[in-house]
Each structure stands twice: as structure tokens, then as C-alpha cells.
Nucleic acid binder design. Structure first.
Length: 186
DNA sequence: GCCAACGTTGGC
DNA sequence: GCCAACGTTGGC
């Protein structure tokens, strides 16, 4: 049994945290991308890159607003494995694609994370600078609880879950009015 | 606007 | 390969 490659599952149980400056790429902008998501470009840190390489399809991540807001505002799902960052010409940097899953009903501020003893070892506290961080299952559950989310309910909203068990037919996709169509590219 | 932490770069 | 200098990030 030496040939056994333990990677038959396309869906992993990994959890992450992705930081973004709202000025550059806000949660609203992420949501505007829809279920297709978009490449998480611009990461120029090896540890962060390696974290992205470890991501699997269906992995979930917290979307954190740094600088302005300083709070976890939503949940994203990995929709594409690590691939070259098209904004990088050196061939060094990579990115995954992520798509918005749902809002955090009650955004979880950094201060609240720091104040919670259960989250004392969270990377957001211990490795503040790291832009792509791993999150443990325990931390995931706790932060979801603080934000008013049921982790199981979140999972049910992921595209990977929907693909596995799609509901009969309740999609009345009539008008996807997105007033903010103007590209606010930096 | 200030300051601290961290990562990267470059000289030896 | 080690160490110092520098730049960037990001909270406060």
C-alpha cells in the first residue's frame, strides 16, 4: 500500500483568514464578483503563498478588513487552487481564487478576537502581519459563533456543497441589479 | 502621524 | 552562511 495517495477528496476541511485593505479590495467588491470569485492576487510573502498552496477547493476563509474597520466581515470559499499570479512577472508568486459565501451577521472586530482567551493563539493575534493565515477548526467555530453564524449553515451555502446536493429548483434569477458596476480598480 | 514587528535584501 | 540595514505593514 505504498502507492496510496490520500487525496481523493476534492473538498478539504481547511480554514483560513484572508486580509484585505478595504481601500484596495473590500468585502463589497468581493461580493460583487459573484460565485465565480476572483484571483486573490498581490500576495508577496512566502509564508502566505505557501498557505495558499495548501488550500483545497471548498476550503473556507474569513475575510478580514485591515487598517480600516479591522474586523472580520464575511466568509469566502476557495474556488480555484493556487495558480500563477498574473500580476507577477517573476514566476514566483501565486494566488488562489475565492468567492464570497456569506456576510458575517455581526462583524467580529480584531479587538474582540484579542479579548477572547480562546483565540489567544490565533494567527490574527500572534502573526498580525501575515496576510494569508491558517485558522484551526476550533477558532473557526468560535469566531463564527461570535459573528452570529452557524458553521454548519455556512458550509451548506458553499458552492461545493451546493454542487454535491443541489436543491430542486428555486432560482428565479431575474434581475441581478449591481449598481456598483464601475470598476474601482486601483 | 507614530511606532513596533516582520520580512527581505545586501555586504562581508 | 551570518548579520546588519532597510522597507513595508498595520495597529494604535
Amino acid at each position: 500500500m505504498a502507492k496510496k495517495q490520500p487525496a481523493p477528496t476534492p473538498v478539504s476541511t481547511g480554514f483560513w483568514l484572508l486580509k484585505s485593505e478595504p481601500d484596495v479590495h473590500s468585502w463589497a467588491m468581493q461580493k460583487a464578483r459573484g460565485p465565480k470569485g476572483e484571483p486573490w492576487t498581490g500576495v508577496r510573502n512566502y509564508l502566505a503563498r505557501n498557505n495558499m498552496r495548501a488550500m483545497r477547493l471548498g476550503d473556507l476563509g474569513f475575510f478580514y478588513h485591515s487598517n480600516e474597520g479591522k474586523e472580520i466581515v464575511g466568509i469566502v470559499e476557495v474556488s480555484a487552487l493556487a495558480h500563477p499570479d498574473h500580476e507577477d512577472t517573476t514566476g514566483t508568486w501565486e494566488c488562489v481564487d475565492v468567492c464570497a459565501v456569506c456576510d458575517m451577521p455581526a462583524p467580529v472586530p480584531l479587538a474582540a478576537v484579542k479579548a477572547n482567551p480562546q483565540l489567544a493563539k490565533m494567527s490574527l493575534v500572534t502573526s498580525m502581519r501575515l496576510s494569508v493565515q491558517p485558522v484551526t477548526a476550533k477558532e473557526w467555530t468560535e469566531v463564527c459563533r461570535m459573528g452570529g453564524l452557524d458553521p454548519a449553515a455556512v458550509r451548506a451555502q458553499t458552492s461545493s456543497e451546493k454542487a454535491a446536493a443541489p436543491p430542486p429548483k428555486s432560482q428565479s434569477r431575474t434581475a441581478s441589479k449591481k449598481p456598483a458596476k464601475t470598476g474601482q480598480k486601483a
